[in-house]
Amino acid sequence: MELPTTHSASLIFVDGPTLERVAEFPSLVEALRQAHTRRMHCDESMHLSRTQPDGTRNAFNLLPAWQEDEVLGAKLVTYFPGNLDKGLPSAQGIFALFNAATGTPSAIIDGTALTLWKTAADSALGSSLLSRPDSRCLLVVGAGGLSFHAVAAHLAIRPALERVLIWNRSPTRATALRDRLLHTDLGQGRTIHIVSDLEKATAEADIITCLTMSETPLIQGAWVKNGTHVDLIGGWTPQMREVDGPLIARARVFGNERNRILECGDLLAPLRAGDITAEHILGDLFDLCTGLPGRNTTQDITVYKNAGGGHLDLFTARYILARMTLA
């Protein structure tokens, strides 16, 4: 899809339900792939936080990005973990999109919905470049707010997936995710099961997507069979880890942007421990989308670290604006 580079006569507002209506994963993944065919400078984010009386930390983040002479923008997002007890999302925000040639505002987009679609599509693009096309079994580790979109994105780019296994510490959330999937087209012609034995489920999976805030590795390298693709969405801080060092050492490792993934515990911990060197990280999406080989053989284990970034929000916002002009 060709993305717009000129500004509109009026500012477009896109709320969450509208974004959900106009977006679809195959075209978003393709838009992200096209956007990664030209490397860009990924700007630093700004993070503010305040400690609450209960010891938790509320955060306010600004994630800017600028595609020269095309578009620029920033996501303003809050992270208030106590919101979960109030029935509210822990992460909320907006994205402001501007025309880079004139500085004219183009769109204000619901940042919560944009983050769900951006994050899931980022991992799906990584999977499209690294997982086996004949993958049949998807294991979802974590059943939080992003899990439904992550499953939908993986199924969109790997339609041969016929089994979905769901593991979560809370059975209630796992059940809610299973029921939601079964009540959509995603559940048609597929088996969707909740699992309690993570080791057994890991051994069966062809693709594993992890969406947790665990600080202790959940997936052990010894459990993962040859040929598996492992997608790591959670674990975005140096303290968080979803997989152990032996898995990282066994795998061909990639991520969405080289500098950002080095800030995440799943790669930082084995680097500090000496289990791997920086050269073990073979490339990022910009490399993969411009021809770097991902999987060499069907027996390779591949790991993709999804560390986010304002550039991905910008790419997704461009896509949403393009879809709005077509609607």
Rank of each mutant, 00 (worst) to 15 (best):
A174V: 00
A174P: 07
T175G: 06
T175H: 10
A176D: 11
L177E: 03
L177P: 03
R178W: 00
D179Y: 06
L181C: 08
D185H: 14
G187Y: 02
G189W: 09
R190S: 09
R190Y: 01
T191Y: 14
H193I: 13
H193C: 14
I194Q: 15
S196M: 12
L198M: 03
K200A: 15
A201I: 04
A201D: 11
A201V: 11
A201M: 06
T202A: 12
E204R: 12
D206T: 01
I207W: 01
C210A: 13
L211P: 04
M213T: 15
E215C: 13
T216W: 04
P217V: 06
L218E: 02
I219F: 08
A222T: 09
A222Q: 13
V224K: 00
V224Q: 00
K225P: 01
K225R: 15
G227R: 03
G227A: 11
H229G: 08
V230T: 09
D231Q: 07
D231F: 01
L232V: 02
L232K: 10
I233T: 07
T237W: 11
T237V: 05
Q239D: 15
E242S: 05
V243M: 10
V243I: 15
D244L: 06
D244G: 04
G245N: 11
P246R: 04
P246D: 09
I248T: 08
A249K: 12
G255T: 00
N256H: 01
N256R: 01
N256G: 01
E257T: 10
E257C: 03
R258P: 00
R260E: 05
I261L: 14
I261N: 00
I261Y: 00
E263G: 00
C264D: 11
G265V: 12
L267S: 07
L267T: 03
L268F: 08
L268A: 15
P270G: 04
L271G: 04
D275Q: 12
D275F: 08
I276H: 05
A278M: 10
H280F: 02
L285M: 08
L285Y: 09
C289P: 03
